[in-house]
């Protein structure tokens, strides 16, 4: 077979730019929130498309979540993925990053002989950037995190990785796991002829059955004791809202802008904030 077998791991996250499901205090009601494809994952999809365009092969989008997460698999197909796999199982609830990594690794293993696994750098809801490297550890493969550019030559991946104040140029053998930085090339919004639109695809059960596959833990021979609460070494112990201090801000409003600005600068001086030394 020519070309590479490429897995792209994606996640459905709450759309925080939408007002839907956002409570007045800023917290999110996940059940009512509008959902979207994790924006970081689009950079991963773009890299997968680049490799396939150059070398051929197949792109398989994988996600884990409740049944509606199928929507982002359809979206991935619209961008050009060949197939999608949804891992959905009630036993996955409350999985932390380690348990999630085991579950996603189990899907990749089930697919067999994957050459490259792409993930986004992190998700916008969890924001940990841990799941990718933890999957690589399970797979016992090398990883390149924060990848910005890559070229595949003679079965090796040459990547440019962003580090503090610079870049590292690396070469790795395959299979490998790559997390793609959000400074990489954005996803080209190109529609593929074999897919119509997300909504249309989701209505077309016949086509859906050939392209999007739903599996549970038993289907992929995953150990249910390594996922969910039981398989997670961490829990969220307590959450609290951030600083509703209020009132500590000296707010200037209602006057002409020039008056507000003058009052603010006068107050800064009166408060001896030391701003004078900063002005040039």
């Amino acid at each position: 077979m020519s070309g590479y077998k490429i897995a792209v791991l994606i996640k459905q996250v709450p759309d925080t730019s939408s007002k839907a499901g956002v409570n007045p205090d800023g917290t999110v009601d996940r059940a009512r929130a509008k959902k979207m494809l994790n924006p970081f994952d689009k950079f991963a999809l773009q890299k997968a498309l680049e490799v396939r365009a150059e070398h051929g092969g197949e792109i398989i989008a994988i996600t884990m979540g409740p049944p509606p997460a199928k929507e982002i698999l359809a979206e991935a197909l619209e961008y050009g993925a060949d197939k999608g796999y949804l891992l959905t199982d009630k036993r996955l609830a409350a999985s932390d990053t380690l348990a999630t990594a085991y579950a996603l690794y189990s899907v990749v293993k089930y697919l067999g002989d994957v050459d490259i696994v792409f993930t986004g750098l992190q998700t916008t809801d969890g924001d940990t950037a841990q799941t990718g490297p933890q999957i690589a550890e399970r797979m016992d493969v090398p990883q390149i995190t924060y990848l910005e550019k890559l070229a595949v030559v003679d079965g090796k991946i040459h990547g440019v990785r962003v580090i503090e104040g610079g870049v590292q140029k690396l070469t790795t053998s395959m299979p490998a796991l790559i997390t793609v930085a959000n400074s990489a090339k954005p996803l080209e919004h190109k529609r593929f002829h074999n897919v119509h639109s997300v909504k249309e695809l989701l209505r077309n059960e016949e086509e859906l059955a050939n392209k999007i596959f739903t599996v549970n833990l038993d289907d992929i021979s995953a150990d249910s004791s390594r996922v969910g609460l039981v398989g997670s070494p961490t829990v969220v112990g307590k959450t609290w809202k951030l600083g509703e201090k209020g009132g500590s801000c000296a707010l200037f409003k209602g006057d002409a802008v020039s008056v507000e600005v003058a009052e603010l600068v006068d107050k800064l001086k009166a408060d001896e904030r030391g701003i004078e030394e900063l002005v040039q």
């Binding site: 201090k245 801000c249 707010l251 802008v257 603010l264 701003i275 002005v279 040039q280």
Partner: peptide, 28 residues
């Protein structure tokens, strides 16, 4: 809620005035 000073207004009006005021009223 957490800024020390705030101006409610159009930033395009406020920013140039702020710059001017900083320079005239504060520059050593």
């Amino acid at each position: 809620q957490f800024a020390h000073y705030g101006i409610v207004g159009d930033l395009y009006e406020v920013a140039p005035l702020l710059k001017e005021r900083f320079k005239t009223a504060m520059a050593g």
